[in-house]
Amino acid sequence: MLLFLAGLLAGSMNALAGGGSFVSLPALISVGVPSVAANATSTLALFPGGMASSWVYRDGVRSVCGVNVMPIAIVTVTGGVAGSILLLLTPSRIFDGILPWLLLVATLMLAAGPRLSAQLQTQARPSVLAFATVQFFLGLYGGYFGGAVGLMMLAAWSALGGGDIKSLNPTRMVMVTAANAVAVVVFVLAGAIVWQECIPMTIGAVIGGWIGAHIGRRLPSSVVRLLTLAVAFLTTAVFFSRAYL
């Protein structure tokens, strides 16, 4: 029941403003799942919601910074595979020490991402190699952890002259889902998914995504953002305390 409710809340958060892993990951760890397996399981549990969002956004996908969608997807997927393998090679004890810092980075991006993206907009056109390098590391982060990777993509693309945020959002959603998709495949093939805990969370996340999409039409965006940030800051503080105190 705890994992179902965590999935319900995480799915709703992702549909509203993102940050669902701030709920799903600690919920899995709280029931005894090791941190690396919990991260892999959380990725799979929240994946169907991302697929649904990508389907909705499919008509708006376009090139970024003069680079076509297919090359962006190839680089993103390559980074996602590398990140997911790197996660599996990280001992849980070491990941426990890294996790609070990853959560802190994700929290800061949740807090500053939209404003940062707007401020970084430029008309400069980077070289294809520079764009591919940035996108590879974004995909790697997405496969390894993924918290707030969508906001990181928007900020990076805006800084590289990709255009306004609204037009970038469909491509961002598809690329985040692509990185998660290959990570899920790697995690399943490696046997890293804890299925008994994953199933109720996945069911909750799917229902939560549907509920969140409807709530999002009624709640003011400022309220949604404040609630998401509150969960993110609290979760980050708890994990710092867990790791260092």
Rank of each mutant, 00 (worst) to 15 (best):
P114D: 07
T41C: 05
N14V: 05
V31C: 12
G79W: 06
F187E: 00
S241I: 11
C65G: 11
A27P: 01
A237D: 01
T43H: 11
V238P: 00
A6M: 08
V77T: 09
V56A: 11
C198V: 09
V206G: 05
F145G: 07
G150P: 12
G97L: 14
G146Q: 11
L25W: 05
S222R: 15
I85G: 00
L226Y: 10
G147E: 05
L46C: 03
W210K: 12
A179D: 09
V149D: 12
A179L: 08
S241F: 11
A192L: 02
F4W: 13
L87E: 09
M175Q: 13
R217Y: 03
L140Q: 08
T41H: 10
G191C: 06
A159S: 14
T171S: 15
G11Q: 04
A124C: 05
L154P: 03
R115W: 12
A52T: 10
S54D: 04
T133N: 03
A179E: 10
A148C: 10
A183Y: 01
R242F: 02
F137E: 03
L9R: 02
G161C: 06
V188H: 01
T171D: 09
V64Y: 04
G113D: 08
V56W: 02
V223N: 04
L160K: 06
V186Y: 02
M173N: 15
F47T: 07
V61R: 05
V105W: 07
F233R: 02
L154N: 07
I207M: 13
I193G: 06
A183N: 07
R242P: 06
S241K: 13
A17Y: 08
F187N: 00
T122W: 01
S24A: 15
L5D: 01
F239P: 06
L102H: 04
P48N: 04
V149F: 03
S158H: 02
M173C: 12
A178C: 14
M201C: 10
A243L: 08
L140V: 10
L140S: 12
S42R: 05
V105L: 15
V185E: 00
